[in-house]
C-alpha cells in the first residue's frame, strides 16, 4: 500500500526537514490549544488527567517545532500525534455522556474505553518515531486534493438545488482539472458524454429518484 521507501533514508535536506518540523509542530500545538479552550465550553467539567494530557501534547508540539525533540521517523511521529489528538478530542466530546452505572455500561463507557486505548497505543507509535529512524513523508499533491475534493463538494452542493445534469457536469469538469496533462477540449467532450450517460442510466435505467433539472418551474 505504501509508496514510502523501505530503506528508511531521509529524502529531504536538513533545512527542509527543520522547516517541516517547525510547521508541523506549530499545527499540533495550535490544535491542542483549540481543544484545550473548547474543553471549557462543554457542560461537564473535563477531568484533570485529560486536560493535563492536552497541555503535555501542546508542549510536545512546541518542542517539535523548536527542534528540541529530534523527529527520527516523521511518519510515525506525526501519524501517532494526530491519533492522540483524535482520542483526546473523543475524550472531551464524550465527556458529558454518563458512564458505568453499577455493572451496566453507560453510553459513554465504550467510547472512552476505545479512546483511552487508542491514546496509549498511539503514544507507543510516537515514542518509536522519536527513537527509530524512518522515511520522510513524501510531498502532498495539492492540486489533486483541491480539485478532487472540490468536485465532490460541488456535487454535494449542486445535486439538491440544481439537479443531476448540472451537478455531474460541474463535478466532472472540476475533477478533470486535477490531472496535470488535461486538455480543455477533451475534458469538455468527456464531461458531456459522462453527463448524458449518467442522466440516462440512473434515473431511467435504474429507476433511482433523481431530479434531472433545476427546480425553476
Amino acid at each position: 500500500m505504501s509508496d514510502a521507501t523501505p530503506s528508511g533514508e531521509w529524502s529531504r535536506s536538513a533545512d527542509a526537514r527543520r522547516q517541516y518540523n517547525l510547521v508541523g509542530g506549530i499545527i499540533l500545538a495550535v490544535a491542542a490549544l483549540g481543544l484545550f479552550v473548547w474543553s471549557f465550553w462543554v457542560n461537564n467539567p473535563v477531568p484533570l488527567p485529560v486536560r493535563s494530557s492536552i497541555i503535555i501534547f501542546f508542549a510536545v508540539g512546541i518542542a517539535i517545532s523548536a527542534g528540541l525533540l529530534r523527529v527520527q521517523n516523521p511518519q510515525d511521529v506525526y501519524g501517532g500525534m494526530a491519533l492522540i489528538l483524535l482520542s483526546l478530542t473523543a475524550l472531551v466530546a464524550s465527556n458529558d455522556l454518563p458512564g458505568m452505572r453499577g455493572f451496566a455500561f453507560g453510553p459513554g463507557t465504550a467510547p472512552r474505553l476505545f479512546a483511552f486505548l487508542l491514546a496509549i497505543l498511539s503514544l507507543g507509535v510516537v515514542v518509536v518515531g522519536f527513537l527509530k529512524r524512518g522515511p520522510d513523508i513524501t510531498g502532498y499533491k495539492i492540486q489533486g486534493v483541491v480539485f478532487i475534493i472540490g468536485s465532490i463538494l460541488a456535487f454535494a452542493a449542486c445535486i439538491r438545488p440544481l439537479g443531476l445534469v448540472i451537478a455531474s457536469f460541474a463535478t466532472v469538469v472540476i475533477c478533470a482539472a486535477a490531472a496535470e496533462d488535461g486538455k480543455w477540449r477533451e475534458t469538455l467532450i468527456v464531461a458531456i458524454v459522462i453527463t448524458i450517460f449518467c442522466s440516462f442510466l440512473f434515473p431511467y435505467g435504474l429507476n433511482l429518484p433523481f431530479q434531472l433539472w433545476p427546480r425553476f418551474w
Binding site: I148, I149, S151, I152, L153, F155, A156, A157, I159, R160, L164, S168, T171, V172, C175, A176, A178, A179, D181, G182, E186, V190, A191, I194, C198, F202, L208, P209, F210
Partner: peptide
C-alpha cells in the same frame, strides 16, 4: 485522466443515492 472523473462521479452518485443526503457526499470527501 479520463477515467478518474468517471470514477469520482459514479462514487458521488452511489453515496448520494444511499440516503439522498448531500451531507454523506461531503463526509466521503
Amino acid at each position: 485522466r479520463h477515467l478518474f472523473p468517471m470514477i469520482v462521479i459514479f462514487c458521488c452518485i452511489g453515496v448520494y443515492s444511499l440516503n439522498n443526503a448531500p451531507f454523506d457526499v461531503s463526509l466521503t470527501a
